[in-house]
Amino acid sequence: MDLDALRAQIAELEEQAARPDLWDDQEKAQKVTSQLAHKQGELRRVADLRQRLDDLTVLYELAEAENDESSLVEADAEREKLRSDISSLEVRTLLSGEYDERDALVTVRAEAGGVDAADFAEMLMRMYARWAERHGYQVDVYDTSYAEEAGIKSATFRVHAPYAYGTLSVEQGTHRLVRISPFDNQGRRQTSFAGVEVVPVVEQTDHIDIDEKDLRIDVYRSSGPGGQGVNTTDSAVRITHLPTGIVVSCQNERSQLQNKATAMAVLQAKLLDRKRQEEQEWRDSLKDAGSSWGNQMRSYVLHPYQMVKDLRTEYEVGNPSAVLDGDIDQFIEAGIRWRRQHAQAN
């Protein structure tokens, strides 16, 4: 890590944060204060790791000098924890893509598998919400389309965190669940699928022009599970981008105007991601390279054995309950390392 450059960035952000007119533009102000807090946290994190490393040396010296077995066990445990924390910091340095620093817009959709797929999609949504909660990240749910019997057809939510897009982008693809279906009266094993899409949040500097003539805007009444209405006005908004067929919707705000603004932001993010993918495909075609990795990326097996396995990195664990409760950092880190290695190989 370039600590001198990090200190210079902190000094520049502190100068911006001290300006009396900072909050004249609330969006910019929030971005400046968020970046400042993040970069100050990064610097403290490095300083803390270095201090712990120095302390660890002393701890081993004391354990050996006093021939204290319990102190040696304590030092070994701290060494393993320190190794893990340094590894996590190293992974962060691998996030150097154009949009990696941004917030993430995540969409989870039920795919093949009927009601089990809808239930699985809701399980994945909860998994990411619990992961964000573990890290203290804010999550805003923009839209949820509930399935008729159980689960969800789709959901779109924003994760507010530094490097949220770079971190979660490795989660994109098709997730596969194998289990005894709780919806099958005969207790048969069922395989179901859910898709995860991750795009970066659009910022003012992005140039995404949308012609109003290319949009179809529908308004409708917000609904909850089972189709139950949650308000009495047609405040929910659905926007269809006719040239691409992309459909986005938002129903979490109280007013139709707010929902339209949020839906437009989601549409811009998806169009930006499509543009980025097209540019990447063009670059790949010049290199005669195939797609970066297969679409199916992780399997969650609950029966006849317990396992979650990433099909790209081969990383696996035997505790699906913990993974579905948000313990996915090791999968994310393995995915980020794998992506970097794959990019270098091509």
Rank of each mutant, 00 (worst) to 15 (best):
R274T: 10
A236Q: 13
V73R: 00
M127F: 04
I86E: 08
A334T: 03
R189C: 03
D288T: 02
R79C: 01
G113R: 04
E171I: 06
G166N: 08
R179A: 12
A118E: 03
L22G: 07
A77L: 12
Y142G: 14
G335K: 06
L53K: 07
V323L: 10
E148K: 08
K275C: 05
L168N: 05
Q16P: 03
P162C: 05
R254L: 09
E122F: 09
M1C: 00
D273Q: 13
M307H: 09
S84E: 15
E133Q: 15
V139C: 10
R337L: 11
N295Y: 09
V201A: 14
V202S: 03
E80R: 10
E69D: 12
S145T: 13
S285L: 07
K28G: 00
M127I: 06
D184M: 03
E64H: 04
M264L: 15
Q190C: 14
E279A: 14
A147Y: 03
A269L: 06
L271F: 08
R274C: 00
D55I: 04
Y163S: 06
L36E: 14
V46Q: 12
E69V: 06
S96C: 04
G114Q: 08
Q277V: 10
L324R: 09
R189Y: 08
T233W: 00
S71M: 13
D85I: 08
E278S: 10
P320A: 12
T144G: 01
E66V: 00
A29W: 01
T232P: 00
D103V: 08
V115T: 15
D54V: 09
M297A: 08
D214K: 09
Y163I: 06
G113T: 11
L272W: 12
Y163W: 08
E149R: 14
F157R: 06
L43I: 08
T313I: 09
E203K: 07
F331K: 03
A77F: 00
P182M: 12
I239E: 01
E279W: 05
K260P: 05
A263L: 05
Q186S: 15
K153D: 12
L302E: 10
V248T: 09
M125G: 12
T313V: 09
T107G: 01
A110I: 04
A322S: 14
W282N: 11
L3M: 09
A11S: 09
V139G: 02
A75L: 04
W338D: 10
H303E: 15
I210V: 15
S291D: 13
A269T: 06
H175P: 05
V178K: 04
E80S: 09
S291L: 11
A236M: 10
